[in-house]
């Protein structure tokens, strides 16, 4: 056996990493809001996913019921929101020790065409606590369809307010959440209180 450098060993073990096959489509992450409802968000909007212990969350009084509290990680402090509650479902997250959290980046509208996310001052981070993060998947743009009438009847009105498009080639159409709309709504909620 020849002595291999760690780089060589990595190369032999993970050939895909070093010989990338260009793939088409956009990356999405499936989120199970409640056991019956699955939504997806674009991978680009996600900063990080993690498990958050309930004790690490600082509840803040006089906030809407959907807001669980403030959370601090990696030098950032942001709000943690119960997504199910926010989307109008009965939440399953009360009385759990830990939350599966998706930290999303609320990208401003004007920058939505830019493919490269930036971390500027305008960037806002929001924590979404979900029932279960199912994983990422790649979807070609052809399969993405903007909202139509047929789809609207299948989802709730709260959900409908944040959905722009649907992924079609699954068993049932998978709605894609619009993070900006949700941010806007959150700001509204914050101002209301």
């Amino acid at each position: 056996m020849q002595m291999e450098t760690p780089a060589e060993r990595l190369r032999s073990l993970l050939p895909q990493v070093f010989a990338p096959q260009p793939k088409e489509g956009e990356l999405f992450v499936k989120l199970q809001v409640v056991p019956q409802v699955i939504v997806s968000i674009p991978l680009v909007s996600i900063a990080e996913v993690s498990l958050v212990m309930a004790s690490e969350i600082t509840p803040i009084p006089n906030m809407p019921d959907s807001v669980l509290g403030l959370f601090n990680t990696k030098g950032y402090v942001f709000w943690l929101i119960d997504l199910a509650y926010f989307l109008g479902f009965s939440s399953t997250l009360s009385r759990v020790k830990s939350y599966e959290m998706v930290m999303v980046r609320a990208i401003p509208k004007q920058h939505s065409d830019d493919a490269t996310p930036t971390t500027n001052s305008s960037e806002q981070l929001i924590g979404l606590a979900v029932h279960h993060i199912q994983g990422s998947f790649r979807m070609p743009a052809s399969d993405i369809q903007t909202s139509d009438a047929g789809m609207k009847s299948r989802i709730t009105s709260e959900l409908l307010a944040y959905v722009d498009a649907y992924i079609l080639n699954t068993q049932k159409p998978l709605p894609i959440l619009n993070i900006e709309k949700m941010k806007t709504r959150l700001i509204e909620l914050g101002q209301a209180t």
């Binding site: 990493v17 010989a19 990338p20 260009p22 990356l27 992450v29 680009v44 900063a47 990080e48």
Partner: peptide, 17 residues
């Protein structure tokens, strides 16, 4: 895995593999 995907996508073309 999700985090990895996130980080990879952030790397752009290099992160595709």
């Amino acid at each position: 895995a999700v985090n990895a995907s996130v980080e990879a996508s952030r790397a752009g073309e290099l992160g595709q593999g």
